[in-house]
């Protein structure tokens, strides 16, 4: 298919919602789908004050469905034996709500959903770490997954190759916080704080964070470890473990990753051309204002690219708007661009 032809199926825009106002603004500003989580450790954004209870989830699903949009529920952490009932209840609750898909990672959760609610569509979460088509085939053969969310580790040619061999559609991350590690396979947070995305649905949890003004500058700590030290006037970001400045062989630098956001606006024509099913926006933990801003820009971009891919280019005002809400005020193409790796 040439880059000039119009694709048969438009790219679906999947936006995050940490609460009902975010869900509504995402729907109002052009999200095709919104993904949410419940108020416990069954999802990977288990933050205080965030997420949906039975009532707001029901209101959210009604709101989205009334406008012809879809709602997905993320149940993408890994239950331990003592907590299994919570995940079982969450799957049942999602099915009862009539959501359009459950996004899951653990085999026990996928297996339960498949057997108990055979009509409930399943997506493999990015936390399922499927980076190759053999892994995708595994989840498709056993659980009938209808879509897979790819970890943010593949270059564009690799994404294309996976897609050509995948039995299901691919959802890729387009914008937002950037995991540098393969999702679902990173234990850095629990190594320092005792809590990880897999076990607890959190990374670098706020309760383990300390901010301290010192004569040397503003210091940020996680679980007691010095993550970064900022000179006066230097912007200080949230001390996510992998985005600190550390010392390796006498050099002090961002040894793992800079505080930066993923932004793939300029890759849209290629993603559309190769037949990617959906673009995911990260950030259920962010404010309704973030959701509004990012949804607006991406809606406009996807529509412009679909109208005329050959003439498409990210507008400066889009980049400006996204820059305002980016971590560290800078963006990257991440692993899609080989040189980043």
């Amino acid at each position: 298919m040439s880059i000039l032809s119009t694709p048969s199926k438009p790219l679906e825009l999947v936006c995050p919602a940490g609460n009902l106002p975010s869900l509504k603004t995402a729907v109002d500003h052009g999200a095709d789908s919104v993904y949410i989580g419940f108020r416990n450790d069954t999802n990977a954004r288990h933050f205080p004050g965030l997420n949906f209870d039975a009532k707001t989830a029901s209101q959210g699903v009604q709101y989205a469905h009334a406008k012809g949009r879809r709602v997905f529920v993320a149940l993408n952490t890994f239950p331990q034996p003592s907590g299994w009932e919570r995940w079982q209840r969450a799957v049942d609750q999602a099915a009862d709500l009539g959501v359009d898909a459950v996004i899951a990672a653990d085999i026990s959760v996928l297996d339960y959903a498949r057997r108990r609610h055979p009509d409930l569509p399943l997506h493999l979460s990015v936390q399922g770490s499927a980076t190759n088509y053999e892994a995708i085939r595994f989840y498709h053969e056993h659980f009938g997954i209808r879509r897979v969310v790819l970890p943010r580790v593949l270059s564009l040619p690799q994404v294309r190759h996976v897609l050509e061999n995948s039995p299901v559609g691919l959802e890729v991350f387009g914008f937002g916080g950037l995991c540098i590690m393969v999702e679902g396979r990173c234990l850095l947070s629990s190594y320092v704080t005792g809590e990880s995305p897999n076990m607890c649905g959190v990374c670098s949890p706020a309760k383990a964070v300390r901010w301290e003004e010192t004569p040397r500058g503003l210091e940020t700590r996680l679980g007691g470890l010095l993550i970064d030290r900022h000179a006066p006037g230097e912007p200080a970001g949230y001390p996510t473990l992998c985005k600190g400045r550390f010392t390796v062989a006498d050099q002090t630098y961002y040894a793992i990753e800079e505080p930066t956001s993923l932004n793939t606006l300029e890759l849209l024509p290629e993603l559309q051309d190769m037949g990617i099913a959906a673009i995911k926006i990260e950030g259920r933990q962010r404010s309704p204002a973030y959701v509004t801003q990012v949804t607006k820009v991406w809606r406009a971009a996807i529509d412009a690219c679909r109208r005329n891919a050959a003439a498409y280019a990210p507008k400066p005002e889009w980049l400006r708007e996204l820059g305002k809400v980016s971590e560290g005020r800078q963006t990257t193409l991440g692993a899609y661009h080989r040189t980043w790796q």
């Binding site: 943010r152 580790v153 540098i180 590690m181 393969v182 850095l188 190594y191 692993a335 790796q341």
Partner: peptide, 9 residues
């Protein structure tokens, strides 16, 4: 302990 894997070297 093996803690994490990345696309980046």
């Amino acid at each position: 302990l093996p803690l994490a894997y990345s696309a980046r070297c």
